[in-house]
Amino acid sequence: MSELPANTPRQEAMAVLSHATPKRLGELWAAWSDKPAYHKVRGPETGLVMVRGRAGGGGNAFNLGEATVTRATVRLETGEVGHAYCLGRDGDKAVQSALFDALLQRDAEAVETLVLKPLREEQAAADARLRDETAATKVDFFTMVRGDD
């Protein structure tokens, strides 16, 4: 039912970047010591994506409603092209995500260690916290025994 494609490392990295908050990504970009020379090939530009659902959860697709999406494409001086598509309207986030996507092709280890790993850990911690907060509201049913025998 799920149409998740086979996730390549690049797709996974782009997902980690798109899940980051603009603020957090801005911090990570600010902390990146050796900022590359680059130019913007496209954007950042904001548009809409029509989000689809499925009737009954798993049936025929229908158009649920739109979401704002910002995209950017950058090219590093060394030739690598980076792309980003993120929900929301934050142009800086899109450009920084595209830059990290491009840097990933040039300097994978540094991007992994300094950007993706911390983001992944923070997102996992936030997800775990949400799960645990929700788990505290799980109903534990018990049976009331009435009468003597």
Binding site: T46, V49, M50, R54, G57, V69
Partner: peptide, 22 residues
């Protein structure tokens, strides 16, 4: 929303894989 271009249609969301809050 009428002022923005349309980039495309998403893949259908998968509610079975939801990060459940309730």
């Amino acid at each position: 929303r009428t002022t923005l271009p349309r980039f495309g249609y998403s893949k259908p969301i998968d509610t079975a894989a939801m990060k459940i809050e309730r």
